[in-house]
Design a binder for these strands. Structure first.
Length: 432
DNA sequence: CGCTTTTGACCAGCGC
DNA sequence: GCGCTGGTCAAAAGCG
């Protein structure tokens, strides 16, 4: 949870810095324009002494006027952006306050009443499904308690082939079918949670205990924090001709397997940027479409990342944090009972269908193109389906909608998604 | 020579 | 208990 907070703050500051630099750039260009205009006017007046060309002076005046008008427009836009930035600051602070409140309430709840165990059966955690674009009936997928990556591929492929396109951002909160909250959705690690650890603690962990022993001190804290339960995975589906996606990180292949149901071998990589980095990824081509590369990331980098790797890392870590943090800010916004508000807000933001589903067990927000959803296999896994590229106009609309919508989406995820939407196949920011 | 990749062996979890 | 499967290890091979 703290990692998520830190990540959120970092992403927020990054986006704020972007806005600021954008504003600064506009100010600079404005100043340049005015200086240029003044300079030209001075020159023209000097020239006018010698040539006394009234027509050219008129032209200069006209140009100056238009420049001033343009300057006014840019100033207005500047003001709007400033207001937007201010609003973002306010929203962020409000969210932070709410976040603290919720954390305190949660802790108070758990420490005070043992009766809550019964309530937990009602207030089960949500699986969050954010689907940007192509959307097929998720109910089929919901029915599967355990799906391997290939199974998901098949589902997605079917959805694609059927052309069952529901354009929208799908943000689905599914009431878990698991009785124990922790089995379905790892909550932020806390002493309270560690007490009611399900049997899975002794079961499958990632990295396995054997591996953990080999991980020296530096990464231990993080690993220990993440390992009590199954770690979240972030699966990225994208078209890619190269053996692996260029995500900016350095990876070392440590294994390869033929997974059942897919003739394409699955390759296992670990991050070699940091000596003890726990992050690993699995790369496998889709059996149905060899141009589609499924890359599954697991873990959080415990070292500074190269600039070119931050987009992917922030996305995966944000998505994983969102999953690990359970309800995320979306549900925080919605309150303790997600279904209570699921029918309250339907919005058409900039022409995009942002609306929660009426289904009491789920929340769905739809957005054009691309596909982002959560699944609930043995490992909690988020799949980012980036197979379809959004057009630039759609992206602009998406950006605007995201700005308006970020009260409901974790900020870090919002900004990370925006980054991914810009160029799903290539993560290096300098190529954007 | 050092690093990376390959590949068979090994281990643990899970279902029957 | 047994077999299947996913995930990892580590020795050997490859490469610059």
């Amino acid at each position: 949870m703290h990692a998520f907070q830190v990540e959120s703050k970092r992403a927020y500051h990054e986006s704020s810095e972007d806005l600021k630099s954008c504003l600064h750039d506009k100010d600079l260009s404005l100043t340049k324009q005015v200086l240029l205009a003044n300079d030209k006017k001075e020159r023209s007046t000097m020239e006018s002494d010698s040539k006394a060309s009234s027509s050219s002076q008129k032209e200069q005046d006209n140009w100056l006027e238009s420049a001033r008008a343009e300057m006014g427009e840019v100033r207005e836009e500047n003001q709007r952006l400033k207001m937007c930035l201010g609003q973002m600051m306010k929203d962020y602070q409000a969210l932070q306050m709410k976040f603290h409140d919720i954390i305190q309430q949660e802790e108070a709840k758990k420490s005070t009443s043992a009766v809550d165990n019964n309530h937990q059966a009602v207030e089960e955690p949500e699986l969050v499904s954010l689907s940007l674009g192509r959307f097929s009936s998720e109910s089929k997928r919901d029915g599967k308690s355990k799906t391997n990556s290939h199974g998901k591929d098949e589902d997605d492929e079917k959805a694609n082939n059927e052309g069952d396109l529901s354009l929208g951002l799908d943000c689905k909160f599914q009431v878990s079918k698991f009785h124990n909250a922790n089995e379905a959705l790892p909550k932020p690690i806390s002493p309270v949670n560690s007490e009611d650890q399900p049997k899975e603690e002794a079961g499958e962990t990632w990295p396995p205990l054997k591996v953990l022993k080999t991980v020296p001190s530096e990464g231990d804290d993080e690993v220990v924090q993440q390992s009590p339960q199954k770690k979240a995975r972030v699966c990225v589906k994208a078209r890619c001709d190269t053996p692996t996606m260029n995500d900016g990180c350095q990876w070392r292949k440590y294994g390869q397997k033929i997974a059942k149901g897919n003739p394409c071998p699955r390759a296992y990589y670990r991050c070699t940027v940091g000596s003890s980095c726990p992050v690993r990824k699995q790369v496998q081509r889709c059996a149905q479409d060899l141009s589609i590369l499924n890359t599954t990331y697991e873990g959080t980098h415990n070292h500074p990342l190269p600039l070119s790797a931050t987009a992917m890392a922030s996305t995966t870590s944000a998505a994983a944090s969102m999953l690990l943090s359970g309800s995320s800010s979306s549900s925080s916004q919605a309150g303790p009972n997600p279904s209570a508000t699921s029918s309250t807000t339907a919005a058409d933001l900039h022409g995009l269908n942002f609306y929660p589903s009426d289904n009491s067990n789920s929340k769905q927000f739809y957005l054009h193109n691309s596909h982002f959803h959560f699944t609930s296999p043995s490992h909690p896994t988020i799949t980012l389906d980036l197979i379809s590229n959004p057009s630039s106009s759609q992206f602009n609309r998406f950006s605007s909608a995201m700005l308006l919508f970020q009260n409901s989406l974790p900020l870090v995820l919002t900004s990370a998604l925006l980054n991914l939407m810009r160029c799903p196949g290539q993560w290096a920011p300098h190529t954007w």
